[in-house]
Nucleic acid binder design. Structure first.
Ligand SMILES: [Mn+2]
Ligand SMILES: [Mn+2]
Length: 272
DNA sequence: GGCTGCT
DNA sequence: AGCAGCCAACGCAGT
DNA sequence: ACTGCG
């Protein structure tokens, strides 16, 4: 895959991706010698990234300024600077310490089949639904799936993260054959780790429409829940195929996500 | 890939 | 002008 | 104190 293919990909999907990047700090995964070479992670601006926005350093005291991408130009110029992946915070600049969503990142352990992951995602949706929370699904662009839960920004990162951990612990307790709540790959074999650790302050998850720096260059694609059973994998869409797929989509499968207002306060009590 | 400093 | 070397995050979880 | 992790 050539750099120009990546640049063209981001240019072509910018209209869909920019709403997901808007007003959020972003971290970058860069691949100056290609995705088979050494990658590095970048959180702070460097002198020559003209179109990218440098955020107020006060957003994260004791650290250098964070970055944001708020235009097609910034997205394309980043790709020209070998940025492959864009990872976003779960809060927006206006309420930087109050996340407006949390993510359950379904990470399959060794030996987990795709149908098992599909079933796990459906179980996650049902669990959240029983807690009164509506969620949205996207492919990760890698091996797994991301379940995203928008919330009204009110509680802090520690509380939201603790709640997300409680959800995962509950699922691992009810269905221990399928889920684990701890990260280590050791007892993850044949099971799915639901990574709640993405929900801490300053933590990030691959943004919707971000490419991934893996062979094949999958992309994170938002889908409707009723597409889950026909999905073929976490990297079903790639930088080579996403544009054509999107050209046939009439409706945003996440149209409800943008307007959703829901709180986790009741769900916290239900789980306690 | 951009920047700095050395030759 | 050309080139070599260096740089580009961070904190939590678990042991 | 140390490593693995994303
Ligand atoms: Mn994942
Ligand atoms: Mn993960």
């Amino acid at each position: 895959m050539r750099k120009i293919d990546l640049v063209h990909y981001y240019e072509s999907i910018a209209q869909w991706m920019l709403p997901h990047l808007k007003n959020r700090p972003v971290s970058l995964v860069r691949a100056p010698t290609g995705i088979t070479g050494q990658l590095f992670f970048q959180k702070h601006p460097e002198s020559k990234m003209p179109a990218m926005k440098e955020l107020d350093p006060a957003l994260w005291p004791e650290h250098a300024a964070l970055l944001a991408v708020d235009s097609v130009e910034a997205l394309v110029s980043a790709a020209q600077m070998n940025v492959v992946e864009f990872h976003t915070w779960n809060s927006k600049i206006a309420r930087i310490n109050q996340p407006d969503r949390f993510v359950l990142d379904l990470d399959p352990g060794e030996g987990v089949t795709w149908p098992m992951l599909q079933e796990a995602a459906e179980l996650t949706r049902v669990m959240l639904s029983e807690l009164g929370l509506e969620s949205w699904l996207k492919t990760s662009g890698g091996k797994g799936l991301h379940v995203v839960v928008p919330i009204t920004p009110k509680l802090g990162f520690d509380e939201v993260k603790a709640f997300s951990q409680a959800v995962v612990k509950h699922m691992a307790r009810v269905i221990p054959s399928k889920f684990v709540a701890v990260m280590g790959s050791k007892n993850r074999v044949g099971k799915i780790f639901i990574d709640y650790l993405r929900n801490g302050h300053g933590q990030t998850t691959a943004c919707a429409f971000s490419a991934r720096s893996r062979p094949g260059m999958g992309v994170s694609m938002p889908v409707a829940w009723d597409q889950l059973r026909e999905l073929k994998g976490g990297a079903q869409w790639t930088i080579a195929t996403a544009r054509e797929y999107l050209s046939f989509q009439k409706e945003d499968p996440w149209s409800g996500y943008w307007k959703k207002r829901q709180a986790i306060t009741r769900a916290i009590k239900l789980l306690a």
